[in-house]
Design a protein around this nucleic acid. Structure first.
Lengths: 147, 147
DNA sequence: GTCGTTGTAATATTCTTTGTTACAACAAGA
DNA sequence: TCTTGTTGTAACAAAGAATATTACAACGAC
């Protein structure tokens, strides 16, 4: 099971807004062209990012802007914005372990803290990367293209 | 997107084999009863764990045994055995970013190393937990029940 | 040979993701 | 005010993965 491409799409969107936002109006159609996905997918993600307070979208006239300094937007912010897993649980637990079996009725006690520990490690690493890192590398690779 | 319940099921299976294996013959029907899932699901997971060299399953007569010391079987071993994500990639990337857009044709250069870094953190934490930890906590919770 | 079990195929069901069409609501400018 | 380009969203389709279920051949011990 993989983390939805909504996450990489969202980072792609941020890279586009930051790179082109000062020159062009960045619309969902433009972003859909760059990522090569349907514009409605983009609009849904934009809605989630807007709901998380990371971007602003201009109704009517169109166009998208980032509302916070890039070094204050972490991958974890983006992950939480676009991953709509209920209660944010990384692991899917089998639903109804038997209460008749000693192991079955204790498996949650046994496992839950370890699953949380693993999830925390993932989230810690997500929180360590910001859009400022993305900006730096985007500028690096784009300038290397124009040699 | 969540990690398949095959993972928690597999840990549950190991806890059962270790707890009951010396007393009973641990069959797929027994395990299915404890976890409350279909026996065929159990057999598929047993097949994956066997393929990874973690357990042995007796054909014909039935029953399952663990083939390595518990402290040498990590959560990562189990995760790799039962998660059939292609190439083991945690993140799903949108398939065909546009090569016409400078960001689109560089997004993999920009993102890939960061995605690997995050995946490595997850796997490092998975590797830090072993079935010996599970055995310890299983015994603890089961003995607390019999006070 | 009988019995209980495993391995596996085939199929169904459900859920999530992703894609697509359609259209009302909106804001700016002619 | 009308036109234009855009966003927000609903509705639905298509595809893929997870999980459930039935059925049965292969197997090993007795």
């Amino acid at each position: 099971m993989q983390i939805s491409s909504r996450f990489t799409l969202a980072v792609h969107i941020f890279a586009c807004i930051d790179t082109f936002g000062s020159e062009y109006k960045v619309t969902s159609d433009f972003l859909a062209g760059s990522a090569n996905v349907n514009p409605v997918i983009i609009r849904k993600i934009l809605g989630q990012l807007k709901g998380a307070g990371l971007i602003a979208v201009a109704r009517g006239t169109g166009g998208t802007t980032i509302t916070k300094p890039l070094d204050e937007i972490t991958f974890l912010d983006i992950y939480n914005a676009v991953e709509c897993v209920e209660k944010g649980e990384l692991f899917h637990f089998h639903e109804n372990p038997s209460t008749d079996c000693p192991v079955g009725r204790n498996i949650h006690h046994i496992l839950d803290d370890k699953l949380i520990q693993i999830q925390n490690a993932l989230e810690r690493e997500l929180a360590a990367i910001t859009l400022a890192d993305i900006k730096r590398d985007t500028e690096k690779y784009l300038s290397e293209e124009n040699v």
